[in-house]
Structure formats: C-alpha cells, structure tokens
Amino acid sequence: MTKKEYLDKLAKELGSMSYNDVKDILNDIEEHFNESMLAGKTEEEAAAQLGDPKDLAADYKEGMSLPMILSKKAQKEAKPKVKEPSSGTVMFVVLMTVFVAIPAWFTLFGIILCIALAELAVALGSLAILATFWSYGSFLVSGLLLGLTLLFLAIFGYAVCYFSIKYFVLGTKWYIESMKRVWHNGL
C-alpha cells in the first residue's frame, strides 16, 4: 500500500469522526510516513509496519470514547468538591424552592387543570348539541354550526392543553436538574 492509499483507507475507516479530528489524525500518520522515508524505508514498508488501517481506526475510535469518560471523571476528581454544599447554596435552593418554585408550580398546575376541565366541558357540550341535532333533526343549520364550532374549539383547546402539560413537565424536570446542579457545584 502506498502512503496515499493508506491515508485514504484510514480516512474512510474514521468516517464517523469530525472533520477536524480526521484531519489531525491524518496529519500525524502522514508525518509518520515522512519520517519513515527519512529513515530509509519505502512507503510499502512504512504502511506494513503501521498495521491495518482498519485496526488503527478502531484504536482511534476506542480512544475517543474512553477519554470522554476519563476526562469527565478527571474533572470531577480535579475539583476537590466539598461533599456538603455551602450554607449559601442551601439557603438559595431552599428559599428558591419554597417561595418561588412551589407556589409557581401549584399556580401553573391549577391553571392547566382549569383549562383541562373547561376543555372537557366544551367537548361534552359540543357532543351534546350534535347529539340533540341528530335526534330531533329540527335545529338544522344553527344547531349544527354551534356544535361544529364547539367541536373545533375543543380540538384547539386540547392542543393547547397538550403543549402546556408537556412544557410544564419539561420545566419541572429542568428546575429539579438545575437545583441539583446548584446543590452539587455551588452557585
């Protein structure tokens, strides 16, 4: 294999890595080829001694996932974190939770509950009117339109309901996570 063939094959095997990583790696291996030439080897010899580009790429990929875990660990170890959060942190988390988060949470929960119940009423009402129209058949256009309007209102309301509940849950999760972070890492 020539230098070019080797580098091409390696680039292909590295495929899923970022452009910068691949460029960096190819630079290193190209430098190895150049040094091998200077040491009097041929490109073929250098390629053979480097080993299968597939194995090399696999080693690189393995190294990529490992350092991320290691460096996270290292970061944690590097920060000599006090196990006990400082009193300021405790006060912040407690005050924030008791006086802001909990009231806000119940208020939002109440509002969403009201919307959901109102929704249910509207939906039932629209069904009732449609049913009435069906059984008597005499209100004709006005009854039908009213029923349909309410039905669409119900559908729209359910969409609003769905999104508010979704973001309510996401917001709650986010709040808990960020408080945890503050608790562990300080302000």
Binding site: H32, Q49, L50, D55, D59, G63, P67
Partner: peptide
C-alpha cells in the same frame, strides 16, 4: 511520534500505528 513508535516497536511486538491513538488519548486527557 515516529521516535516513540520506533522505540516501542523495537522492544515490544506492536504495529507502529498503535502509539498514535495512545498519544492522542493522552493529549486529550
């Protein structure tokens, strides 16, 4: 790189390529 690879592969049976992912990992750590 070449020097490290050469030194190692003279003493242990490994491909020259092996040291490069290691060097890269050590650098990122």
């Amino acid at each position: 790189g070449y020097d490290v690879a050469d030194t190692l592969s003279r003493k242990i049976q490994i491909s020259d390529g092996t040291v490069y992912p290691i060097l890269r990992k050590l650098a990122s750590d």
